[in-house]
Design a protein around this nucleic acid. Sequence first.
DNA 1: AATAGTATTGCAAATGTTTTCATAAATTCG
DNA 2: CGAATTTATGAAAACATTTGCAATACTATT
Lengths: 343, 343
Amino acid sequence: MDNYQKGKVDIVAVAKAAKVSPSTVSRTFNHPNLVSPATRKKINRAVQKLGYIRNRAAQTMHGKRSGTIGLVVPTINHAIFAEVIQAFSETIDRAGFSLLLASHSYDLDREYAMVRKFLEHRVDGVALVGLEHSDATTRLIEQQKTPALAIWNYSEDCPLPCVGADNRLAGHLAAEHLLALGHRHIGLIFPKTTGNDRAQNRLSAVREALNEKGISVPSEHESEAPYSVSQAKQAAMSLLTEHARPTALLCGNDVIAQGGLFAAQSLGLKVPDDLSIIGIGDFKGSADVEPGLTTIRIPAETIGKLAGERFTDYITSDDPEPFRICCELERIVRGTTGPVAVF
Amino acid sequence: MDNYQKGKVDIVAVAKAAKVSPSTVSRTFNHPNLVSPATRKKINRAVQKLGYIRNRAAQTMHGKRSGTIGLVVPTINHAIFAEVIQAFSETIDRAGFSLLLASHSYDLDREYAMVRKFLEHRVDGVALVGLEHSDATTRLIEQQKTPALAIWNYSEDCPLPCVGADNRLAGHLAAEHLLALGHRHIGLIFPKTTGNDRAQNRLSAVREALNEKGISVPSEHESEAPYSVSQAKQAAMSLLTEHARPTALLCGNDVIAQGGLFAAQSLGLKVPDDLSIIGIGDFKGSADVEPGLTTIRIPAETIGKLAGERFTDYITSDDPEPFRICCELERIVRGTTGPVAVF
DNA sequence: AATAGTATTGCAAATGTTTTCATAAATTCG
DNA sequence: CGAATTTATGAAAACATTTGCAATACTATT
């Protein structure tokens, strides 16, 4: 009553208002079956009246879970991660957890800083994108015995539990598709690979697949582009105006592929007749460009959802079992790839 | 030493290792100038050695700030919000805060639930998208005296501090542009307006602008589409195959506009000769489609950044001054709009 | 050298919960 | 009906930190 106005409503205020002890109030929240329906009702009325909101900080301090999970991504502003974040967020929310989110712009030192910050908040678990992390980060997680999860990549010898797809396979599938269509002059546009094992794995698998056919990519048919349609378009423009134009473009992801597509269109090239283009990812929107983008689908939503489910299980379980989940890739053939033109 | 392995490293463990009192350790973190350089060094060594990580939950309980800011968005998986989230996240991170993120799928009751959850975590502030919220939410924020911020929309009579753009103006500018080009038969594709004051404001402003010119939009030239290129494309397809086709399409946002563009292309319509298209938002990628999308630019990144800066200032200030910031819109004329064809 | 002031440190209380243990009341059973 | 359970509640300790106050040690001033 008195401190009703002051916003200082704590569990003892509620207890007083309901004329019971704080213990009973606490129990009403945590083990409702241990308190009689009558008192429960009294307490709920008091809670309602005072506008009491539980203080998780105090619970956390007591050794209960904090109810937060930290997720550190390279960047939020990016179709595919946004999709994973969304799915992950929704799933852990359903399990009663809140999401602490941070991004590190592909800088593994900043990743370390973010993880550390999250540990200060006593997150119940921390999820990272990819398998490549700084030693400091690995040590930190290890030492603090915080449940950790690698998301997005799958590898059978991943030291952490992981939920993701096999990026090497993705690269391989993309290359295979172009080769099967008869392409031998293939341009490669990939993002920078430092601190980005996804891109790295894809690229090296592509190279391998091409090498097996005795194909090597001349350096003027290789280009680096950041995660941006417009910059990728630029890169593709210059690559496609080389004197010996490749017959196909294999792009490290769908954003780059879209850039490639727009570049081709603005150069007046017919896709797929003059140029085939394949991406990796199958982002939202890739299906809808004209022509639809051929790509290797990475099931971002599934990954996010599965990761959320399994990780919360893992965290709440008494004897957690490590797990590794490999999500299936799918080759989605749409309109941007076709057989190589005969000369 | 003993509990070094057990991960139970707290401030008193550090104190013991450094042979000082816990108070001194605490002070080293919070008021370093109050402790002598020599002891500070001792303590830092101990911290290093034991791998101590401060416990924010305990600090929070003591009345210090929790160091978290909650952001509730309609959806994460969505170009424009992703951009705001990214900018907001980075900015508050720089000020030492962590981001708690949740989405409510345009359901204001879920928004309430999310805000409540955040209040349990004792966030230092909570940011919401838009100005339309359930009464319960408003009451909750009011009653808990938690600093709150409305993001994305600007309105001069907003009850909360806000950082955003004027969506009515956005709608007006879009309509004006088409009218200036001579269009009189204008198709409208907008998202559902319930619980989405952005869309609502834009749409009503468009209607007003058209009415002023004595133009009303027949119902067969109006369509509703969710935030999805492909579904918008569907909607546009059926709208554009009506017997009396409009000469221009005004779309509630750029995603829908892209759908419209692809629909036109796949129907063999020349843009902008046969059909003009204008969007609102200027999302990443809007510049890069072929032809480039004409749109009203809403500076998402600026909004996120400004919001983060001002809000953290507001939270950390001793006597916080409410603020309202209106971010400038910009008409970006690219290739999808042109003068109406003469018959 | 004595005094006043300042810099550095420690003690103990306080923060809001949960949980163990103990106690009291109610119920069951022979 | 009395003993044995079971059910419902409360008291108090514990969680990891911060901070006001007090105490000590050091420095400067006269």
